[in-house]
Design a protein around this nucleic acid. Structure first.
Lengths: 223, 223
DNA sequence: GAAATAGCGTACTCTATGGTACGATTTTAT
DNA sequence: ATAAAATCGTACCATAGAGTACGCTATTTC
């Protein structure tokens, strides 16, 4: 009865297939993040999955394809929920600080930094993947933040300037502490108070540099 | 005659050996930078070298050992000559700008960024190497710069603050442009004017944030 | 000049792993 | 119920590359 001939109602097979595919990606992601590209084995993934190798190749025609799928999926999941925090009605400094804190927290999670490492590592082999990832993740965050800063500028809370540049400055300041340490491998996880300190530092510098009508008087020559 | 029994006079053999070792490292470096760790083959290095594989293992007991040696050597070579540029007598802004420019230039050279990528990529497998590298390279630069900034602070050219933090801020601002783009793989080489622009931007923000006695309060009027 | 040493070339072993083949079994669709 | 599709398990293939063995030659030392 009611033959589901439209693609709108996914058949049981299709559902199952999607589930299976997702399961594969999850297992693969763990492996890739943990071991990197070269040291992840298809056999290992298949074993962990419980299925057979043949099935694996039925879903992904090669290791590279699987890797690409993992990265794309992870990149999408990476997208930040920064927008909620960036409330234009709150007062500026606390808003920025909590935004930065939240960003740093996210970006210093073990998964996120492992992903970052992985992408950078394979940047030569999969240049398109880097692009996808960095378009989805940092680029997106920057735009969100730039938009917010633009608002603050028009409200006179900040001096007028290129909001994209301003966002870049704030972001890079935010990530110059724990995050760097993590990527370097010098620390495993930042302490919460370090995150707060990084955020406070970044916002402090940022606000000094972008205070309304603040113009430093040293030897001019700023074009 | 005059048997050179002291180790001070290196025998011809020792010289030769050192040369050979260095040649191996050079070839290996090219390979590693170009292909990463996993995709560099010992056989390939041996072939390029012209020698035999046996010789290779006579110098380095394993691929990992060779890799470590390459990184250590490269890291040492990486150390910056920033000190010459940081002349305490010049006026502040141009000095900082040229220092930043020079840094960005160095750090965005294909070799440097390939090295950076390599280290980050292998950070899990060789944590000690990351430490060596990042102690030698950015850490060193930061200290040099911090020292200079400290001087500028005591001379009243900058407000008093933690010079290390200040150096961190300036560096992270400097590297937030082309350098990021490069690591991401979005560009291959930065145009010279982009480098200058990045430096100018960083120094501008930095000077605004670290201007002497500049407080974000608009009504200042403090001498 | 003789002994030690280093290096060369080549062939070889061993292991890991991406990817395939295939018959048996289960699940889904009708 | 029955045919088609998906999965499973397992054995297998092909390749690649780290590391070894070994006999021959060139260089260095004394």
């Amino acid at each position: 009865m009611t033959p589901p001939d439209t693609p709108l109602i996914p058949s049981r097979r299709e559902v199952r297939r999607k589930d299976r595919r997702d399961a594969i990606l999850s297992v693969a992601q763990v492996y890739f993040l943990e071991h990197g590209f070269a040291d992840t084995t298809m056999s290992g993934i298949a074993a962990e999955l419980g299925g057979s190798k043949g099935t694996l190749w039925k879903y992904f025609p090669s290791k590279e394809a699987l890797f690409a799928a993992v990265v794309e999926r992870a990149a999408k999941a990476y997208q930040g929920r920064l927008s909620q925090i960036l409330d234009p009605h709150g007062s500026l400094e606390p808003t920025l600080q909590s935004a930065c804190r939240s960003l740093i927290e996210k970006v210093t999670s073990p998964d996120a930094s492992a992903l970052h490492r992985l992408i950078v590592a394979q940047g030569r082999r999969f240049p398109e993947l880097s692009k996808i990832f960095f378009d989805l993740a940092p680029q997106n965050t920057r735009l969100l933040l730039a938009d917010f800063l633009h608002g603050a500028m028009t409200r006179g809370q900040l001096r007028s300037a290129d909001p994209i540049d301003a966002a870049r400055a704030l972001l890079s300041l935010s990530l110059s502490g724990c995050h760097q340490q993590m990527l370097i491998g010098r620390i495993d996880r930042p302490a919460p108070n370090e995150i707060a300190a990084d955020a406070a530092f970044a916002v402090d510098i940022f606000l000094r540099a972008y205070a309304p009508q603040s113009r430093p008087q040293p030897d001019a020559a700023i074009v």
